[in-house]
């Protein structure tokens, strides 16, 4: 039965094929498929789809629409990228300078060499100068030396103990706060020498 049906199918296809011939227009259309799509005649379905979107068939005002548009797009993108780059450079540059400026600043010595007293240690280059500078005018109540300004950086003596913790958990800075010279932490509070 399958052989009979297969033979019938072959015969059916053979007879129908006699009447299916490509016409000249179709052959021309098919041969032109290798050429660029701009010069190709659209198939009926494509022509219909183009008719639905009339803007697709509208001729471009420029002579070579697609290439010019693509080039303009890339040029615009390049210009935008360049503008963003320049803006970033201008925005970021002052910030970098501000960061680097304190490290390069030279701190003048606290006292002149003619004045007696301990010479402050030289500051190594590049180290941030966050140490408090001794003021030439002592604050009222602050202990002063016999013949000169207080030492900028008092040496730590064995009698100087770290603040002991109170039962409440707070360090004992308490009543000695007014005696602390300006700019000195309580932990480095020098005791007046007798």
């Amino acid at each position: 039965m399958d052989d009979e049906l297969g033979a019938a199918l072959r015969d059916h296809f053979g007879r129908a094929a006699d009447d299916i011939q490509p016409d000249a227009a179709l052959l021309r259309r098919l041969r032109e498929t290798a050429s660029p799509s701009r010069d190709r005649a659209p198939s009926p379905r494509r022509a219909l789809s183009l008719l639905r979107h009339p803007t697709a068939t509208a001729p471009s005002p420029h002579p070579s629409g697609r290439g010019v548009r693509r080039r303009a797009w890339w040029a615009g993108a390049g210009v935008a990228a360049a503008v963003v780059l320049i803006a970033l450079v201008f925005v970021l540059r002052p910030g970098v300078e501000e960061k680097t400026r304190p490290a390069n600043r030279v701190v003048p010595p606290a006292s002149t060499p003619t004045q007696p007293g301990p010479v402050p240690k030289p500051i190594p280059p590049g180290k941030p100068t966050s140490t408090p500078k001794p003021s030439l005018h002592p604050t009222p109540g602050a202990p002063t030396g016999a013949d000169g300004p207080p030492s900028a950086r008092p040496t730590r003596t064995p009698s100087m103990r770290p603040p002991t913790a109170q039962p409440g958990g707070r360090p004992s800075t308490g009543s000695s706060a007014p005696d602390i010279p300006h700019g000195m932490t309580p932990s480095s509070h020098p005791r007046p020498t007798p």
Partner: peptide, 28 residues
């Protein structure tokens, strides 16, 4: 290649879809 095969492939397309115009579009 198109000249040599268009007829055969067009017939195949027509037998596949049973629509001449659609067959031509698919062949293209």
């Amino acid at each position: 290649f198109v000249n040599a095969t268009a007829g055969r492939l067009l017939r195949t397309a027509v037998f596949l879809v049973y629509d001449r115009h659609l067959a031509e579009d698919l062949l293209q």
